[in-house]
Design a protein around this nucleic acid. Structure first.
Lengths: 266, 266
DNA sequence: CGACACCTTGAAGAGGTTCAAGAAATGTGG
DNA sequence: CCACATTTCTTGAACCTCTTCAAGGTGTCG
């Protein structure tokens, strides 16, 4: 009933817009060969579009290293010197910030094609931890190289601005969620967001495998793990989803959407 | 006891680092003359530092218009076409996002020297409203001009990146607040943040005048206005602050800090 | 001066947390 | 491959914080 391999490309049926992503999957995953950005299957997510041949060649010099992170390992920690941004090739991350007294807050979950490390630019130090929730690989993008390329390629400059702006807008959305939604609305919004992003990467619109614990979901949503668990059970009871541990099958995404937008009606 | 004019430059005694800001105040406020960025008293907040004479001249071409916004008026709305960033010269703003069903969430309060509009870059449309909480004036920074200048002046490029990164880090902090703090901790953190930013602009470390309603504070902090009011009363009762409507006098900022960092102790 | 917006405070109620126990999955070492 | 330890998840019951509803007070502006 559930496919446990998501979000590897062998997961639920790729659909729609991202058919193009499928072709090269096997070649890329089979080895840790150097893949040029220009031929990377994630380039639509990381890179600006409509580059000339010349510009593509320049962009291909951007990534000179990859880094593999084991499940549970950190890509960077709060306080680490900032040198690079990181584009996720495979795997799944969380980012979290902490108070002095030890409480911490998951600020986001990142998947393939997304960029991490933007927090480090302002003070040359990272202000959050980035932790792999499954074995992962990232492209290391030295930030001074990014700035050089931004200088040479206008669409690259624009692209960098857009990535940062997108993160600001995303965080605005999380603030809205944390500041004004009930527990079940939050979870519904979270599931819809996850499945939408997975769908954009060629996965099912209705099935997903969570890579994080209830506690991590709770931290992200400003709830306790028990509350998250109860909300899952409630959704299942109401026939909106099927849940079995981390495997979620969305049966009625329309109802989930209604929950987010019209909280009063039950 | 309270000085109601804060945060105009005639408010509580300017101190410390920002003595330099005082000199030109009168000349600038007296008229709506064109002031070059290079001689603006807020340049340390908006502009990169260490520019050459040549670069300063270029930067001075960036701002070709100013805009005055009346109290209650909007600088831009959700859905508006994005063209420019805005640097606040005088006044005080809030930014807010809304759900489809009409609930809204204040995502930030902005004061002189801070930049608004970054949300619009990613989709060429603004995704929030920016509303003046008092009569205000902003410098209009056309974004294509910013990108040109970023191309010509490396430290400008870096500066733009830092401003966006700072906003991302700020929002991370708000997520931490919304996701893991109690009502009183949130209000304490809010007050400390406000007073710290005002202090950086030459105002008192202990006195401030709120420009927003309890409801707006509540929206920002994910609380109802009654809860905010009660928390103010509690602080006053405990001798941490004096409150009279929007005038706040901080009596024991150490205790406020402790509240934020060690929530259990009362 | 009167209308309106804003703020305070009380009392009742709801939603989420906390504490606790047990079940289900996962990982480890023999 | 199985037994055992550990982590993760679920569920119940009591509790607590914040919200909701309501009323009255204070300040502001035309």
């Amino acid at each position: 009933m559930f496919d446990p391999r998501n979000p590897t490309p062998s997961g639920p049926t790729p659909t729609g817009a991202s058919q193009a992503l499928r072709g090269q999957v096997i070649a890329i995953n089979s080895q840790s060969i150097k893949i040029a950005c220009s031929s990377c299957n994630l380039r639509e997510l990381c890179m600006p579009m409509g580059l000339s041949k010349d510009e593509l060649d320049k962009v291909d010099t951007l990534v000179d290293t990859r880094r593999k992170i084991k499940k549970g390992g950190a890509l960077f920690h709060n306080g680490d010197k900032f040198t690079s941004l990181y584009a996720i090739r495979t795997g799944f991350f969380k980012t979290c910030v902490a108070t002095e007294d030890g409480r911490d807050q998951v600020t986001g979950f990142q998947m393939a094609g997304e960029v991490m490390g933007l927090d480090g630019i302002v003070n040359d130090r990272h202000t959050c931890d980035a932790v792999a929730l499954e074995d992962a690989e990232v492209c290391v993008l030295p930030f001074d190289r990014i700035e050089e390329l931004s200088h040479d390629i206008p669409s690259m400059q624009r692209h960098v601005h857009k990535i940062m702006s997108r993160e600001i807008v995303r965080e605005n959305g999380v603030m809205l969620l944390l500041g004004s939604m009930r527990a079940e609305e939050r979870l519904a919004a979270f599931l819809l967001n996850l499945v939408q992003r997975l769908h954009a990467r060629g996965f099912s619109q209705t099935e997903l495998v969570l890579r994080m614990t209830r506690e991590e979901i709770g931290s992200y949503l400003g709830l306790k793990l028990e509350t998250v668990s109860r909300a899952f059970s409630k959704f299942a009871e109401d026939g909106l989803i099927e849940v079995k541990q981390r495997h979620v099958h969305i049966l009625n995404s329309e109802a989930l959407r209604d929950l987010v937008n019209r909280p009063d009606c039950d």
